[in-house]
Design a protein around this nucleic acid. Structure first.
Lengths: 212, 212, 212, 212
DNA sequence: AATGAATGAGGCTTCATTCAT
DNA sequence: TATGAATGAAGCCTCATTCAT
């Protein structure tokens, strides 16, 4: 993956196009048009459309996995604090790597349907993510912090669904507002509809995780 | 839309194909092949691929909206009971109209991207659904049953995300098990991670909604 | 060519459809729809779309050839009177066999392009027609009644073009008006732009051909 | 509409194909085959088959309208001279832009049947042409040069029919012969069958229009 | 690095035609 | 006679991909 002048522009254009029309409906021609080059020229940068998708998604995916490692190594914080951190992290990555991160989530929906070798990467990343969430919830159940309504796997999928579905309604509104939204979602996850409002205050009083 | 012999087979094949490969990647040829007819023959039943999608999705969509009406008219039950009903209903429809209902949810993800006139129907149905959920949550907040972590709209989107994301991991396992899963999700929504397990018991003790 | 109950309706519908959309663009389905039957049912009456075209065109073509014979045998009238008769005849057939006669002319344009065996009939009929006109003009030149601006073949094609092109602007308006139009065209053919108006009076004073 | 190397070849091939088989029956595949490329490659030059038709017809149409403007501005010549010029012009364009000009006339026959937006252009061009001819005839009638056998509109349609029908029998035979043919048709139009031969001599003695 | 042009595969759609009922 | 359903052949158009320049 060379990084000549236009490379980042192409990445951005591809991300925007994938977000707007979906990977399948996006065409190399329209991506090229956004940058002012012809579709054929894109092959000076990538070997295929799928590779382009991977390249678009690479940055947010790496960032996500890096944060995941950080969280796993953060043994000093409570489970709740770490979950809050995870949710904040996901929202932050949504925002920071927008629209690339959205494209990533968009493609997640195809994991069960596509067997292309390139999708192996998606599958692995998603598996690592799900494991991390599930492990966190299981730990919370073990320590008594959480009282899960179902097995950790199912609860993990429900919580992740809430977060991943954001691709359909979320638009970045700035670090401040995004962080607030993340904390609201955390409060909802923690306390549900009945105590969610209460957890919201709690969320603020929770100690912050030790910064890396 | 005639309903001769092969029509239901075609509907089924289309539903399965759309689920497996996604609407965009599904081809009329492979749908026809599942039924043992040629792609052209499908046009004896529908006027276009999009019409076929609509036909596939029609049944679950109508069922969903009908249940929605039923819920709206159920003024005798508490908000929590009605929410439980809504979640049970969605899981039930998932199950009963599988895979058509999954295709419906699959397409929901494109609402922001596609402007085809056929998608207007999707948009309207989804809008009605979101309004119903939001109204239910708002009512719960008003009556004091709920304590929302954010504005009703945001909470509604989060809860619906949890439910709609099920398309990526849920597979029908029979009325009994599905109903149990629905109640677990309800408990999670109600009590969150902290009290979810407790709410699970509560869920069982809640009075059932008056049957229609 | 059987003549059961619906046969004439089908003929009429086909004629109208061919006129409105052209033979190539007309579909058996839309023809059937005009009569209230399905496209497949048409094959109870004809063996192919081309046969249907031929059947539509048969009546006006036969009528035209019959009148042509009559004209050829009319040795008692002057050339001009016979030409007037020919033009009146063509306009009358346009009118009477509308739209079938128009379809006939419409198809004439394809004579050079299509080699289908069915088109042989068209070719023969057209050849007979052209020969008749050309012979009439040649006779006029020989007798001194006409003074042709070019060889009889070319003049014949020019005159016939004027008549056949009518398919693009003519609509039947009743026997009276149609006959008047025919006489105006005759006057134009006879006297041209310079003396056409004068010939118009002449046309009225010409003796009528002996009726058959 | 780019004009690279193969573009003119494609235009020519399309023109020939349209002429030989008619627009509806011509296929992009056979057009491509004439040039030695695949049907899909044609879309590097035009966006649709209809656009290709328009491109084919553009040159003769523009030439025709340009000459029409020239004629309209030629106030120094008599009506007859200008009509002769018009007929010569049409034959010349037939010849020079063969077969594109023929395709143009071929499509004229569909004006009443097709409502495609592309055909609007045809309709406008044809309307301008008809108006020009009609105006010329009306002027001739007003000045006394002509004595029309019918209203100018009808006479115009008859004359134009004679000219447009040429597509079915005319083949270019060289500037000299074509010009002669044009003058014969002019003589026929002017003097009709009776005095056409006389007008033929007149035609030669008429002053030529002032060259532009 | 970019262009222009071409490929090739495939997809949706149309339609004349056939045939069992 | 008419229907319903299917066929098969084609046609238009799209697009990822390739390649010489």
């Amino acid at each position: 993956m060379p990084r000549p002048s236009r490379w980042s522009e192409i990445l951005g254009a591809a991300g925007a196009e994938f977000r707007d029309r979906g990977y399948d409906n996006a065409t190399l021609e329209s991506i090229g048009a956004r940058v002012g080059i012809l579709k054929g020229s894109i092959y000076n940068y990538v070997g295929s459309k799928e590779e382009l998708l991977l390249a678009v998604v690479e940055q947010p995916a790496k960032a996500l996995l890096a944060e995941l490692d950080r969280l796993r190594d953060d043994t000093g914080s409570s489970v709740a604090v770490r979950l809050r951190e995870l949710i904040r992290m996901q929202v932050r990555i949504f925002s920071e790597y927008y629209p690339a991160a959205f494209v990533y989530l968009q493609q997640l929906g195809k994991l069960g349907r596509v067997q292309s070798p390139a999708f192996e990467e998606f599958r692995e990343m998603d598996a690592r993510y799900m494991e991390a969430v599930e492990a966190l919830l299981a730990e919370g159940a073990r320590t008594g912090e959480f009282s899960l309504a179902s097995d950790p796997g199912t609860v993990a999928r429900a919580v992740v669904g809430m977060l991943d579905w954001m691709q359909h309604w979320f638009t970045p509104r700035g670090a401040e507002a995004d962080r607030e939204l993340a904390d609201e979602l955390f409060a909802l996850a923690l306390g549900g509809l009945v105590a969610g409002g209460g957890m919201r205050g709690l969320s603020r009083s929770l100690p912050e995780a030790e910064s890396p």
